[in-house]
Design a protein around this nucleic acid. Structure first.
Lengths: 242, 242
DNA sequence: GAGTGGTCTAGACCACGGT
DNA sequence: CCGTGGTCTAGACCACTCC
């Protein structure tokens, strides 16, 4: 067989290409696992893994006894809005999108966690944390207010200079810490004093609030962050399978 | 061995119980896959599947070469807020939570998709859809405004009576249609005329907007829905793994 | 180097869909 | 009934962590 060399990693990419180009289009199904095993000369495990990736992205859906159906396409909604999807935290987003943006330090101090802060952040009472406020100025608007708390024992020696850049880059590259998991809550709330101070809310009186708890690969929570953002600029995507 | 009978399904449940009860606590790791294979008398596949479930819930995190670490617990935030997580659509939520709630029909008609509606809903121009507006009154407040569009070819014969109850129940039980996947966008926006008309916004001038595209197991989009909700009452949870 | 989870293969049986 | 994807087993090798 004059088969092009296909690593197992590429199976997913090739299948995705075919779906997007309409080679497998709506009302059709993907070839059966059996057929794909033959075509790519791979094991069932590898084929199923590739299909699962497509499924996680919402491109296809597997039905037992039936096959893998291609879903109708929904329009990409990346128009002029920022899109925060799966892998992006706000810090990552800053480096991957080429928006005109500036980070302003609005507060920087080291404090000890008291009862109230512990309840909010779920850090233990008494530990030292860096409390940092930063304003993200995007396209000439103060669009996001980040309020970070970093466990100073796990993330030591943060400086305003580091905060002005990427703290995550500092954590990963300089400290060599591995970020494992991020638990997020998305709410939206009445704007508070601090929001009116730092954000260009205009007549709006509510903010989005993305609360993040970040854990390293030892299972320790090293960060609590609230990101307050102004209306009409952000979209969060999610895919639910049944 | 006087081993209690453990089906493969229960491995996950048992491991979860141990993590939550602190039998495997922070700073410890889970037993190795090898050990769990022996204990549960199951294959590696089954053990790994169970651990993956725990990992997807944010309870543990697997590190290559190291083991499976237990994550510090974060507080449950189900206080007085509704929590819309993975499996819940608004309709499901209504039946699973015992809030004092009423559904009011604010609009019900069958229309033909025009250019503008097509752009918004991604339904094809010219097809008939049911356009339904419903107000969810929760704890004596008009908290959610649902604006549904159902493809009338795929979801025929909806009546106001059905809309007053659960359309999803009608789709699943009466029509026998399988709901496959739901793509969601979460935004928050300046409140519009329609929101002031139907929601108890008070002085708030913004709404959360959860946009949903639902697909059946033939890959066809049968629904487009916008759920507008008032501030300070809803939380969305998400877990991101790196 | 020893031990861990990540990837991959080969093969079996089950559960569901459609004919 | 046949064909499909879902689950499960057994075994191999690789990549990473840590001593």
């Amino acid at each position: 067989m004059t088969e092009t060399i296909v690593t197992n990693k590429d199976i997913y990419q090739e299948l995705k290409r075919r779906v997007l180009k309409g080679k497998y289009n709506i009302k059709m199904r993907l070839p059966t696992e059996e057929e794909l095993i033959d075509e790519f000369n791979a094991s069932r495990y590898s084929i199923r893994k590739a299909i699962k990736q497509l499924s996680d992205e919402g491109l296809v859906y597997s039905v037992k006894g039936k096959g893998v159906v291609v879903l109708e396409q929904t329009p990409q909604t990346n128009e002029l809005n920022l899109s925060l999807d799966q892998v992006d935290s706000l810090q990552v987003l800053n480096s991957t999108h080429d928006f005109d943006r500036i980070t302003l330090i609005a507060g920087f101090q080291q404090i000890i966690v008291d009862e109230a802060l512990s309840h909010k952040t779920s850090f233990a009472v008494g530990i030292p944390v860096y409390a940092i406020k930063r304003v993200r100025r995007i396209n000439n608007k103060n669009a996001v207010l980040d309020i970070n708390y970093f466990n100073a024992q796990l993330v030591p020696d943060i400086t305003p200079e580091i905060a002005k850049g990427s703290i995550y880059s500092y954590i990963k590259k300089t400290l060599g810490m591995k970020i494992a998991i991020l638990k997020r809550q998305l709410r939206f709330e009445r704007a508070g004093q601090i929001d009116y101070e730092h954000l260009n809310l205009g007549i709006d009186n509510c903010v989005g609030n993305m609360v993040s708890f970040a854990f390293n690969d030892d299972g320790r929570q090293f960060e609590y962050t609230e990101s307050h953002f102004i209306p009409d600029n952000f979209i969060f995507n999610q895919i639910l399978k049944f």
